[in-house]
Write a protein that binds this DNA or RNA. Sequence first.
DNA 1: GTCTATAAGCAGATAGAC
DNA 2: GTCTATCTGCTTATAGAC
Lengths: 210, 210
Amino acid sequence: MDKKETATTDTTEQRIFDAAHEVFVQKGLDGTKMQEIADRAGINKALLHYYYRSKEKLYEMVAKGVITRAIPVIRQTLESDLPLKEKIEAFIDFYINLISKNTFVPMFILGEVNKHPQYFVEHILPKDLPQPQKFLQQLEAEIAAGHIRPIRPEHLVVNIVSMCVFPFLAKPMAAIILGMPEEEIKAFLLERKTAVKDFVFAALRPDPTA
Amino acid sequence: MDKKETATTDTTEQRIFDAAHEVFVQKGLDGTKMQEIADRAGINKALLHYYYRSKEKLYEMVAKGVITRAIPVIRQTLESDLPLKEKIEAFIDFYINLISKNTFVPMFILGEVNKHPQYFVEHILPKDLPQPQKFLQQLEAEIAAGHIRPIRPEHLVVNIVSMCVFPFLAKPMAAIILGMPEEEIKAFLLERKTAVKDFVFAALRPDPTA
DNA sequence: GTCTATAAGCAGATAGAC
DNA sequence: GTCTATCTGCTTATAGAC
């Protein structure tokens, strides 16, 4: 988990980038020290500046990479032509899979947007974000047809995303409070895929009295 | 929102603490500069050290205050003797109310636990945390009695907390992505109380085929 | 108690040898 | 390309006047 999946070329430049990714994603821009990146990459600070001019530039590349990788997955599921139920299932599966492999990423994105919203909008975020309209229309149609219980679409989307993402954000907290060992927590988080699906579809069952 | 509700005595010491609270909660330990706290409190850096020895000490007091205020509310609802349905409603109401008045606090807690887990456990967290056991037992009883649809209790708790907290964490992100103006987002977040309740109770309806 | 001035330490960035 | 050594600037922290 949270390891480079591709390990591309193993040049120094790449090693630095990977090290930077690990640290930035966990500690954010302010919390990260160049020394720590250098240590993890097994080189010294001077080389960081040789390859990436400054701390901010390095951060920018890492952050862009994180966002850029996350976007297509979301777009794909939201904008696809699958029927609603399958779309929701696919979304939950994709989403939780993605996060499982990048545990710190949601925290990173949300935290950094909170702290440097201006900067994030101007330098990191891409212009064309996934549009949920299609999904929302689909949902309204199903409600009108009486196939599912009425619900304001935005709330459904927010509910689904919340249940997928939040447990990973709260993982360290939960580990402390519940005193759960790492392995138990991992197992629990894996169960989330079916748990969220069950919960959502249960909530969407049409009301027999209607 | 996010203003001191009591504004106790308005001594210098208090003004510093309040200023520190605002900044720390928004920017975290690393992102906060003593200068900014001093500016907001309308005094200079030297006084910060006069009243609170160091940045870390000041942070510690603020963080402890935040946690300490949040805990009893959670304990109260979880450990009360209300019947399950009312307990869930009370929990959602209390929780969303609490967060509405302290928008940055959940981000603060989760973010800081992520970045300094060791430090948090040792210095900030109190020893006696609220125990969800009673609630979990109550839930199991209701399931056994067939009053609600079977669900693993831990997942229900996680689902509820997720749906309450996450939208507030994602607020700045959502504002950017959806291009929603501040007012619209606030209105949406206010709807969450009933939205979450509806969703949860809909999901808990017993299955007619069972 | 509150200020100004300054010390001390750290982190980002550069120069220059190899 | 990679290193050591160094500079610069910023941030925390203290000394000392009022």
